[in-house]
Design a protein around this nucleic acid. Structure first.
Lengths: 197, 197, 197, 197
DNA sequence: CATGAATGAGGCTTCATTCAT
DNA sequence: CATGAATGAAGCCTCATTCAT
């Protein structure tokens, strides 16, 4: 049955692509990506018909991975504050620990090669996060603002924070915490009784 | 002090570059930019030694313009809240009204062609905004957070908001206002009984 | 003497090749030919060591088939005029009914991949036709012209005629007849009795 | 005003293309054509936007040249027989003297890259020949056959003859003459008692 | 012997930059 | 100083052929 298309190889290509795109941007030659993945020039194209295909796949993967990381180990029984705090922290720690993926994603996000469909798929992959935020939004000061807007704001704050965490790994925890509090001030319900807010 | 013929051409090239980069990304051929600027192929290189030079110039220009727009007409005598509110509104309205410049800037910002030096210069161009934010930060809940972090957070919120304003021009004003309030919650001093703060 | 499985596949490949070469020319990928023949990529090369081999085989086959079609059911007892008329008609009707084979052959005939040897073999396959024409030639106005030249002229007229038959199927019979008469005028002995010829 | 596109260079490219296509077929690499034309790789594309463009241009040129050669020095005052005889001879001598052009044209003629439009243009370029043949046809035994058919038949005979002339240059004149007589038998009015027809 | 993934040599084309005019 | 043709280095992708399974 001949060598069957191996996931390993496919993943090697994706990894190489992330590394090289992070370093050189989207103009990274497919030939270089292939070489770094220990794969021949042409083999890349048996796994991804087109450079654009590879890019789109990468984009979806990275977004999906982000979503999964954010929701991993979510304490389902806890209250909203605890859940969102957990999510925030998972999300940012993961992102801060994956600077190449982040850089690659930054390049991909602005590319015209990424189709509307891919963006759609990626958005779905983040639905879990959206659900949580929705709960937060509904009872707080931004209850009249469209979820998408709220979500994007939160995302923007997260991205910015991650940049700082990467630049200053020693303070990563603190930055994450600081930003979470800022977000909570932005979105969360004022918690009256407890003074430790 | 009329702008020289040479300046005119430089500007024509930059304008064309913005338009085309917004549409096609950074891979926009210099030849196309030149044609759109009514300048010959080769002449472009007498104004910008290199494509990268043009890109860096553009980056700096756009950042500078942003900064200028934000601070235009700042009510120097008013209180901080009024000043920042004014700045926020100027900034976002200008940005929302310049979608091509924004798209071009989005491409430029992630490019590896933009040197650290250019980023430095651009940062300086936004110093005026930074000063305002500094005042805000110093007295609010993020007083212990580095200015740069605060600044970037604010910027991130602003960018996200502009995207929404562009997508939904009818609600632009409202979105700007909503976001401003969110930012204020994030950064500003809690305003208690007395409104004259 | 059933044809072996192997023969079946060879034939499937050849059929597919004819179809695809007719449609796309000689640049038709072997992989596509294989797929259309329901044969794997690599298997094609166990039947034909080389793409060039396949092409040469095809060329010989098609030429041979042409020759066979021309001579099928030849009325051995009739006079030369009747025999040649019959041959002409068989030949052209077959060719006109096989446009894909003709197109494929047209591509093959000009290809540099077809070796002199293949052309030689193909020529032999048309020997039967040649014999008939030889008789015609020997007694007519072109009796001093080399057979090969006469043969090729006749062939050229036939090919041209077939093109018209394909373009105008309704008039196919008539075109064939017209051309036959033209050929006869070119080559045949003047037939005395009838003045209106 | 910079170097202006030179006809010389354009012609050098075409010449090189004819030579190489004659030798290697249409798969001749553009890079090789460029090199043979003493032109850089990329320069070829300032003269012909596309390889297909070059091919089409070449096709039209060669057809046009053929037509011009056939009609050069036509004795306008002479009778039809003399005119056609002259045309035939001009045509065939020219073609026999240009074997590379012929081979190139043979490749081009079957190519799918040659557009219907190019074929149309080429056909027009041969209109002069067509007019002559029309006169011949109208009064002879093929008077009821479409001109296009007659024209193509004549062309087919001519091509075949040229092949023989090239193979046997010593007999070129004779072959041409032989073929002309054959064509005349095919198409021409029977010339009876009176020779002055 | 079949399968189809792997290989890697090109092919066409684009484009930043140079340079003759 | 402008013009735009010329250069030639890549880049993406295709495809005949090989070879592990």
């Amino acid at each position: 049955m001949a060598r069957s298309k191996s996931d390993d190889k496919q993943n090697a290509i994706k990894s190489a692509a992330i590394r090289i795109i992070a370093a050189q941007g989207l103009s990274a030659p497919t030939a270089l990506i292939a070489r770094q993945a220990d794969v021949s020039n042409g083999a890349l194209f048996t796994y991804f018909a087109t450079k654009a295909d590879l890019l789109n796949q990468l984009y979806i993967d990275l977004k999906t991975e982000t979503g999964a990381a954010a929701l991993a180990g979510l304490p389902a029984k806890s209250d909203l504050h605890a859940q969102i705090s957990h999510m925030w922290s998972s999300w940012l720690m993961w992102a801060a620990a994956s600077p190449e993926k982040r850089r690659a994603l930054a390049h991909l996000s602005v590319s015209d090669e990424i189709t509307a469909e891919s963006r759609q798929v990626a958005h779905h992959a983040l639905a879990g996060i959206g659900d949580l935020i929705e709960k937060l939004r509904a009872s707080g000061p931004m209850r009249d603002v469209p979820l998408r807007f709220v979500f994007d704001l939160m995302n923007a704050v997260a991205e910015t924070t991650v940049d700082f965490m990467i630049k200053d790994p020693a303070g990563a925890q603190a930055h994450s915490q600081t930003a979470f509090e800022a977000v909570w001030r932005m979105l969360g319900r004022r918690r009256l009784a407890k003074p430790n807010d």
